[in-house]
Nucleic acid binder design. Structure first.
Length: 677
DNA sequence: AAAAAAG
């Protein structure tokens, strides 16, 4: 049980200190001279249309949600969601509420600053624009009273400020949540990671968690998790999200979005969502009781990842009134429904189960103003597009611009509005803290080669073995088991219970060898994986990068060994690129193979997802065209720009994204996978 | 010739 003194002295001065107020042309500025990456150019915000998004409907807010749901077409009339209200800044508009205002020089002042003038004099804007920062010095009372006045006398509304107060500690829960600590993290490595943010009015990044006011609850939980300093993504993402901007980032640690979202929820309270949930509780509809209206939704591609995010959310919402929930397939839905019914403010979900829940009337997204798509590219690859559109666009979720959307991948800008693009160099993928080895191993030799590797590995270090098929995973696990190794496996044909059991046995070290399919490649954060073995190489380089990213986490050293043979021709070139980029040893045979392969294959098609209307192609085509400055391109080398998660070379800056030598030659990724998809 | 996710 630890007590954390949160030093509120940091408030405004600290924030001002980190703001680059003087530099209108700097990262915080909005000068027209600033480079606007092509993927942002068509954004309506830059077209100065001066039409205020929901302004038209602003006065028609009717202090309730029932009305809105009946006339779905007029969703703008439901009144601005929470995030719009405090949008403040000076000069009234607030960033999104006044699109033309993006070019107003006054907005060059960083919106992160909790300014309290502006919204007040404007009667019309009053309630929404008045900051309600309980932490911001002078914003306090005025902001709140304006808020209350505007809302009328709904009793529920008045309670929101309690959400910023810590609830009493619970020793047992605290131990459960925080005892598995992260140890041995080499944070120094982080400081080398380059980050580039593009977009209008990019808030200044923070250098420590104390640099931005996140409130007692969040700060206390940060301390309990022993996160000493923010990762590069967090340094940038936290202020961006706190200033209510949409965000697209190549990679993200869960905390990069959870911390600022929770912090905002604590500040702003449940708003309509609470009222709606309460009303729903009294309304025994067709499907029974209680529809929940989460304030924030996090979508993830795999069940295990959803679970992991949920676990993090539980930590960061400890001692608060926010109740996180998770829903995913393969588990008892009744149990999940009962959990939901106990209250759900932040929902983590896999798409399929969420749609199910929505259809059962258990979840309403009407007041979901924070949407996170984790591993969005992966979800689209996996064919979740219809379900995601169903969730995001074809139901009651506030439209973009009225909600805040954070996406960790570079696809699907359909869902974003006036966003900031964060390009973050990777830690622990192709960076130098992973030693990547590629060895030529014929199919028939793989097993014995694997045994050699396992024998050479220390008994207590974790080894993750990737195979390409579920069948292959079972077979290899059997084999290893018969050979006397403590191992387990995870793949999509195993029951959810077995999957979770396998993961926990692996994590705990009871089974230090895990044989896995792609299900375990992304996002899973298992500390202490010393060795990733690609028993079968994937056909997609992105998948490769994610797999090896399971080792060398958070600055630790890791080893990745890949078995290569003539079945892996399709990945040769990209693999070579990755090795070079990460300054790894390149076997000479791989180099010559890549050369041959390049001259063999002539026309390459595009994979499905490039034609999916998500703007992905636009981005990819253009992303390599310009170097926004500061991170010199590498010129000459033909880097693949494929895949948002292929950040930037370990120490090499931003070469492969903004190669500076034009689009054409950079587009080298094999667009057709092994199965011609 | 596959994996993932709803059941």
């Amino acid at each position: 049980m630890s007590h954390v003194a949160v030093d509120n002295v940091h408030g405004l001065e600290q924030q001002l200190a980190v703001l680059d107020l003087a530099a209108a042309d700097g990262p915080g500025g909005g000068s027209g001279r600033r480079y606007i990456p092509p993927h942002l150019r068509n954004n309506e915000v830059f077209q100065n249309d001066g039409v205020g998004g929901w302004d038209a409907g602003r006065n028609t807010f009717v202090n309730g949600y029932h009305d809105n749901r009946l006339n779905g077409a007029q969703s703008f009339n439901r009144g601005p969601p929470r995030m719009e209200r405090g949008r403040g800044g000076i000069g009234g508009g607030g960033y999104r509420g006044n699109r033309g205002g993006a070019f107003n020089p006054i907005n060059a002042i960083n919106p992160m600053q909790p300014m309290a003038f502006g919204g007040y004099e404007n009667k019309d804007a009053g309630g929404w624009n008045a900051p309600k920062e309980p932490y911001g010095s002078f914003a306090n009372n005025r902001g709140k009273s304006a808020f209350f006045n505007d809302r009328g006398g709904n009793a529920n509304r008045g309670r929101f400020d309690h959400w910023a107060k810590q609830t009493p500690p619970n020793e047992r829960l605290e131990h459960e949540l925080f005892s598995g600590s992260n140890t041995g993290i080499n944070f120094e490595k982080y400081d080398d990671i380059p980050v580039e943010a593009t977009g209008q009015n990019v808030p200044h990044h923070i250098d420590s968690f104390q640099d931005i006011e996140m409130g007692d609850i969040v700060m206390s939980n940060i301390n309990l998790t022993r996160y000493t300093r923010p990762t590069p993504v967090q340094k940038y993402a936290i202020p961006i999200i706190k200033t209510k901007r949409d965000l697209m980032a190549c990679s993200g640690k869960t905390a990069a979005f959870l911390l600022p979202i929770l912090s905002q929820i604590f500040v702003e309270g449940p708003g309509e969502a609470l009222a709606a949930a309460k009303a729903s509780g009294q309304d025994n509809g067709k499907y029974g009781r209680r529809k929940q209206f989460p304030i924030s939704l996090v979508l993830a591609p795999t069940r295990e990842l959803a679970l992991q995010i949920y676990d993090e959310a539980r930590k960061f919402s400890y001692r608060s009134r926010v109740r996180p929930c998770v829903v995913y397939g393969g588990a008892d839905i009744g149990q999940q429904i009962r959990e939901l019914e106990r209250g759900c403010h932040l929902l983590v979900a896999t798409p399929g189960r969420l749609v199910d829940m929505m259809e059962r009337g258990k979840i309403g997204l009407d007041f979901c103003t924070y949407l996170v798509l984790d591993e969005a590219d992966r979800m689209l690859d996996m064919g979740f597009e219809p379900q995601i559109r169903r969730i995001v666009e074809q139901d009651s979720m506030p439209p973009k611009g009225l909600r805040q959307t954070m996406m960790f991948s570079i696809l699907a800008r359909d869902f974003l509005e006036d966003y900031i693009f964060l390009a973050v160099g990777r830690v622990g993928s192709t960076s130098e803290n992973i030693t990547q080895k590629v060895v030529w191993v014929e199919e028939s030799d793989k097993r014995s080669f694997l045994l050699d590797l396992l024998n050479a590995t220390g008994k207590d270090s974790l080894t993750l073995v990737f195979v390409e098929t579920k069948k292959g995973a079972d077979a290899l696990e059997d084999f290893l088991y018969r050979e006397g190794y403590a191992c387990t496996s995870i793949h999509g044909d195993r029951s959810q219970r077995d999957r979770e059991e396998a993961l926990s046995q692996f994590r705990s070290g009871r089974c230090p060898i895990l044989v896995a399919t792609a299900v375990a490649a992304r996002g899973l954060d298992i500390s202490n994986v010393k060795h990733v073995i690609n028993f079968d190489l994937p056909s997609d380089i992105e998948e490769y990068v994610h797999r090896i990213g399971r080792t060398g986490r958070v600055g630790n050293l890791g080893l990745a060994t890949s078995f290569f043979n003539d079945k892996n021709g399709n990945i040769t070139k990209d693999l070579l690129d990755i090795l070079v980029e990460a300054k790894q040893e390149v076997p000479s045979w791989l180099e010559s193979l890549a050369y041959e392969h390049q001259h063999k294959s002539t026309t390459r098609g595009r994979s499905k997802r490039f034609s999916g209307g998500f703007g992905a192609r636009d981005y990819r085509q253009t992303s390599a065209t310009n170097n926004p400055g500061g991170f010199g391109g590498r010129g000459g080398r033909n880097q693949s720009v494929h895949g948002g998660n292929r950040g930037f070379g370990g120490g090499g800056g931003f070469g492969n994204f903004y190669s500076g030598d034009g689009y054409g030659g950079n587009y080298s990724h094999s667009q057709v996978d092994w199965w011609g998809n």
